[in-house]
Simulated scan of single mutants.
Amino acid sequence: MSTLSKAVITDDDFQKFREYFYRKTGIHFDDTKRYFVDKRLQERIEQTDSADFRDYFVMLRFQAQGDELQKLINIMTVNETYFFREEYHFACMVKAMLPELVKRKAPGEPIRIWSVPCSSGEEPYSIAIYLQEYWPDIAQYDVEIFASDIDTTILDQARRGQFSRRSVQNLPPPLLEKYFTPAQGGQHFDLKDDLRGCIDFARVNVTEASDTRRFRKVDLIFCRNLLIYFDDHSRRLAAEAFYDAMSPGGFICLGHSESMSRISGLFKVRKFTDAIVYQKPLTGEKVQS
């Protein structure tokens, strides 16, 4: 197909695709995202040599391996992040949440932290750096950090551990020097191997029970700025998945514009000095309405 003749996406096409994508991912595109969606659909129609939207949509739905759906997910999801973003959550982690969590840990029992969506890796690597630099008890505990995203391309990027100057701009210079090696004349920074190897990355759709089943006894979840892309039903599914994955007394951090209280009654609100977070009640404890 010529790049001068883009496939026409009708209102009916947009509605069909929006419903299909929502069923597969839990992500809802409202009408304000129409241009964004149309542009990416037109790119995939062209790149797959499909005749038009109908031809492409039939292939998308009936492709056995689902490779095209994954490619579409990769270009439809937003990956905007940087190191130490919303740092107050990390400060709350080392000052308040972890000291409370370890009181309930048996000797040798690991601390599990889950970053979702992890995008290109800035958040889980920030967690690892913050723990090493600012949690005085890090040497006493085995900490496991899991990171997941629905976008396989961005996960590959995260595993490589190469970041732009913009991504690391909020890191204090001593930490940048300690954990990174400059590359391409200082235009990029490569994460050092010892830190890069401490994160377990996986492709996960949080609205699919089969994807989230592997996460159990998680003590702390960072899920910041994901739920704003979901509708109420998908938000509740995600909240229930997180609840099932968490240990009693575990914490979840949301983005500054998100509120678990408006999504689910499963969690209680905890107000610490540095941040407001949400907690799975201890066994036998009830959430106050």
Rank of each mutant, 00 (worst) to 15 (best):
C223P: 03
A202N: 07
D219P: 02
D137F: 05
A245R: 14
T207E: 01
A245C: 06
Y179E: 07
L131H: 10
R213N: 05
A241T: 07
A209D: 06
S234N: 12
L254I: 03
Y229S: 04
D151P: 03
F180H: 13
D200V: 09
G186P: 04
I221H: 02
I221F: 10
I252Q: 08
A183D: 05
F251L: 13
G250E: 03
R196M: 06
L155I: 15
D244A: 14
F222G: 00
R235M: 14
L171M: 10
I252G: 07
D219V: 10
I129N: 11
S264R: 04
T181E: 14
A158E: 10
D194A: 12
S234D: 12
I138W: 13
R159G: 04
G186T: 04
S148L: 03
L176R: 15
M260Y: 04
F222K: 01
R213C: 04
F251D: 11
H233Y: 07
R262N: 05
N205W: 03
R165A: 14
D156M: 11
A245L: 04
I228S: 00
E240N: 15
M260I: 11
S264A: 12
Q157D: 09
R214L: 03
F189A: 06
Y134I: 00
T181P: 02
P124S: 14
Q162G: 01
D194Y: 09
R159V: 09
I145D: 02
R203G: 02
T207R: 03
L220I: 15
S148T: 15
I127S: 05
I127W: 02
D200G: 03
S164R: 04
D142M: 05
R160E: 12
Q169S: 14
L254W: 02
S264G: 09
D137S: 14
S259F: 05
R216E: 14
A241P: 02
R216T: 05
L227C: 08
G255S: 03
S247V: 12
D211S: 10
R196W: 06
I199F: 03
D211W: 02
C198T: 15
P136M: 07
R213A: 13
N170C: 00
L220Y: 03
R213P: 00
F230S: 10
I263K: 00
G250P: 03
E240I: 08
Q140K: 15
T152H: 00
G255C: 04
Y243P: 04
L227N: 11
V143C: 03
Y141W: 08
F230R: 09
Y125D: 10
D244P: 01
P124G: 12
G197D: 11
F222N: 00
M246G: 07
H188N: 05
A238D: 08
A128Q: 14
F230H: 10
A239H: 13
S148P: 02
L191K: 07
G185V: 01
D244E: 14
F201N: 01
Y243V: 07
Q162A: 05
A238R: 09
D151R: 08
P182H: 12
Q157S: 15
R160M: 14
D219W: 03
F215I: 04
F180D: 10
R262T: 15
Q140D: 15
V218W: 03
K217W: 06
V218G: 00
S148G: 08
I228D: 00
R214V: 13
I228M: 00
C223D: 12
L175W: 12
A239D: 13
S126V: 14
F146Q: 01
D151V: 06
M246N: 06
S164G: 10
R196S: 05
Y134N: 10
Y141V: 04
